[in-house]
Design a protein around this nucleic acid. Structure first.
Lengths: 174, 174
DNA sequence: ACCTTACATGTCACAACTGACAGGTCAAGC
DNA sequence: GCTTGACCTGTCAGTTGTGACATGTAAGGT
């Protein structure tokens, strides 16, 4: 049921088209809940049928703008405060990181370097997002969430650098 | 295909029964790849059919102990070093955390406090795991992974404490 | 002897998710 | 006028994952 609330949550921020939601899933939500357009469009239809969202406008190229309804907001709030969280996760990168010690030193080194490159990129992107928020007119309520992402990625980056260094000290000219 | 490699990875550490794997998924892998026994048993059968794993022993209560084969190790290595990582994730708690700013201050406070309690518990559990590893006879290659978990959870804990404090300063007696 | 709990493996109907297919619209550059 | 690329919405067959059902075994307490 998470997809339903992910969509509802994005609609609670602002009315959007399915296309816009797809992009937001790709850009902001990829690290917490991933979804494709082939899931998003049917979900919007279901949300509309359940009166949790409604079409509030039609634009160019047959686009439909959906907004959350009062019932939708109530349902979202109910889920956020009442439903017991499912703490289980699915992260292929996390799995890889967990299994990396099984590799021999050279492969391991390469794997960690690949991850480091990715995390540095991610970190730079988040810094840009935060900078954009600071420059905005209205205060951005999601700024702390971005800050958390930056802190987590920083810990990751430092840890990866340590692993790479420790590994090269053990296999290199030393 | 991640489940296949998760199972293969656990078997690479040591031969195990399906039951033991199920427990490991619950205890160690729950934060990177979650799976139930109803997926694990069929996957073991598929792995055996593909000669990536084999039954090396039968114990009490009809239990079967599986071990990874040479082909299985090769396939696991190939996946870890050659396959391009899928960085997308699915984490209900992450989604909740992302959407929490949508709640009014009182609900938000409660949500953060619930998460803080959980993360503190998690942190204590990881500390115990690390302490156990330090006391072990053979050096534990997965210790850095546990250390990373501790660092990430520490960042989470501190961030949650800040949010709770900032929130109570804004709504409380202040 | 009986009961409870942990051990242990499996199946299946159903729901969630993916990747590919399919079709159409508008703006900008050449 | 034409082509390219971004915009925009949908469907569907096949795979992955869930929750419940089903079945039985061994150990420990009373």
């Amino acid at each position: 049921m998470s997809l339903r609330y992910a969509v509802l949550g994005l609609l609670a921020r602002r009315p959007s088209t399915g296309y816009e939601l797809t992009q937001t899933f790709d850009r902001s939500l990829r690290t917490s809940w991933h979804a494709r357009h082939s899931q998003i469009y049917p979900e919007l239809a279901k949300l509309e049928a359940a009166d949790l969202a409604e079409v509030v406008g039609r634009g160019a190229r047959r686009s439909k703008t959906y907004a959350i309804t009062a019932a939708g907001r109530a349902e979202l709030r109910r889920w956020l405060v009442e439903a017991q969280p499912d703490r289980s996760q699915r992260s292929e990168s996390g799995l890889r990181l967990f299994l990396t010690p099984l590799l021999d030193p050279a492969d391991r080194q390469a794997a960690y370097e690949r991850d480091l490159a990715h995390v540095e990129q991610e970190l730079a992107a988040l810094e840009r997002v935060l900078a954009g928020m600071r420059g905005a007119a209205e205060p951005e309520v999601f700024a702390p969430q971005v800050e958390l992402g930056i802190r987590v990625d920083t810990v990751m980056r430092d840890w990866l650098r340590e692993q790479i260094q420790a590994s090269s000290a053990g296999t290199g000219r030393d």
